[in-house]
Design a binder for these strands. Structure first.
Lengths: 110, 110
DNA sequence: TTGTTTCATTGCAATATTACGATATAACGA
DNA sequence: TCGTTATATCGTAATATTGCAATGAAACAA
């Protein structure tokens, strides 16, 4: 069916999945890394930097923006993107709570 | 085209994306959470616990296993799954290095 | 105004993912 | 052996994702 049954999962489980989806493509990872690397905001040189077509980059940026992980400011003809620090930290908290589930509780039968 | 151009990204970027894909579906998040919650390994009661059809759960387990995040042991007619602690920690390290990129370096133009 | 630059949107094709019914397989108990 | 139980695999349908050419829109410069 290709349709995820979100309704049978908890809000937390769905939130983890939605955040993880942001990083589930190397282009979006590359975009975010580049936004971190630049100490000032970047615009469309992501297209040159990454090597995908402009509409493709624009689409990935849109997804990251909708998730709230990045912000965009119009500056003349170009658009300046950067990390949304508040939401980035929120995402980190949600995912790390999941990652840090106590491994010692996991049995040793395998 | 639906085909990710993995060849234009670094190995690290692809690895982050591959790991993130593991958590990009709430069913897999639920499976992993359940494996953590049980202090002993679990088998196919994941099907009852989660509420998806048995083939669907089996498919998700296969993906997690191929990634190395879980291990499976045959025990009679049932199969016992549990977290692969070593690879889980490896995954955590890779993703946290990415999450902890210095936010202070990100400009404040947005 | 006209052309240029920069980015977003649209439309489409190709591939990937999700889900499940049907079926296979393998171990066990009677 | 035969039936049962537990899980995996196959096949298929539906939806999602990725990528780009073509086009649109908005700001600027001449």
């Amino acid at each position: 069916m290709g349709l995820t049954k979100t309704e049978i999962f908890s809000e937390q489980q769905n939130q983890i999945a939605v955040f993880a989806k942001a990083f589930a493509h190397p282009a979006r990872v590359a975009i975010l890394q580049h936004l971190f690397k630049m100490d000032t905001c970047v615009c469309g040189d992501l297209v040159i930097e990454i090597g995908l077509a402009q509409p493709t980059i624009s689409q990935h940026l849109k997804e990251l923006k909708q998730l709230g992980l990045i912000k965009g400011n119009i500056e003349g003809t170009s658009v300046c993107y950067c990390i949304d620090q508040e939401n980035w930290n929120k995402m980190k908290k949600v995912l790390n709570e999941f990652f840090d589930l106590d491994i010692s509780a996991a049995g040793n039968c395998c």
